[in-house]
Nucleic acid binder design. Structure first.
Length: 153
DNA sequence: GCCAACGTTGGC
DNA sequence: GCCAACGTTGGC
């Protein structure tokens, strides 16, 4: 069982939307490295949910992989924002797993707070220049983050 | 296969 | 809205 972190812009799709929907297809990722992580996700893997382009940005909760990645339908939607003219149903380029809501943290762990943790120095999210919207997370880092989430502020 | 131009991400 | 740090595209 593996741990991951996915970014989402809350004004587009927030943890509250996920809570409301219960399960969602994690569509719209258009970066090969991120795609490869998405297709590596196994049913039952744990996924930290991060709000990017938010004030402040930070980790807000947890989801679980409900189904392995399948072709992302939004790549075929001609007038959609995520349309990819080079993708065909026979040869899809982009894939998305289903992610189920698990929990929303009692408080957000902001990017600033994450950076303050010496123990999270190696978290890929915090690595300079890492703009990847899907990254793997070490179990030890996951444990630290959950502990932070449960700490009274 | 190089690389300049262009597009995107995402914190600030 | 700016811009650094990427990633992608396409001419050659």
């Amino acid at each position: 069982m593996n741990y991951w972190l996915v970014k989402t812009e809350p004004h587009v799709y927030s943890i509250d939307d996920l809570k409301h929907d219960k399960v969602t297809a994690w569509t719209g990722v258009r970066n090969y490295q991120a795609r490869n992580f998405l297709t590596s996700m196994e049913v039952g893997d744990t996924v930290l949910i991060y709000h990017s382009n938010a004030k402040p940005p930070g980790i807000v909760g947890v989801g679980v992989v409900k189904a392995k990645a399948k072709p992302d339908e939004t790549q075929f939607e001609k007038n959609g924002h995520y349309f990819d003219p080079k993708a065909t149903p026979e040869k899809p380029r982009w894939f998305c797993p289903d992610i189920r809501f698990s929990e929303k943290f009692g408080r957000m762990i902001s990017l600033d707070e994450l950076r303050e943790q010496q123990s999270l120095e190696e978290l890929l999210l915090l690595k300079r220049g890492s703009r990847l919207s899907v990254t793997p997370v070490d179990q030890k880092h996951y444990n630290i983050i959950v502990k932070l989430a449960n700490k009274k502020s």
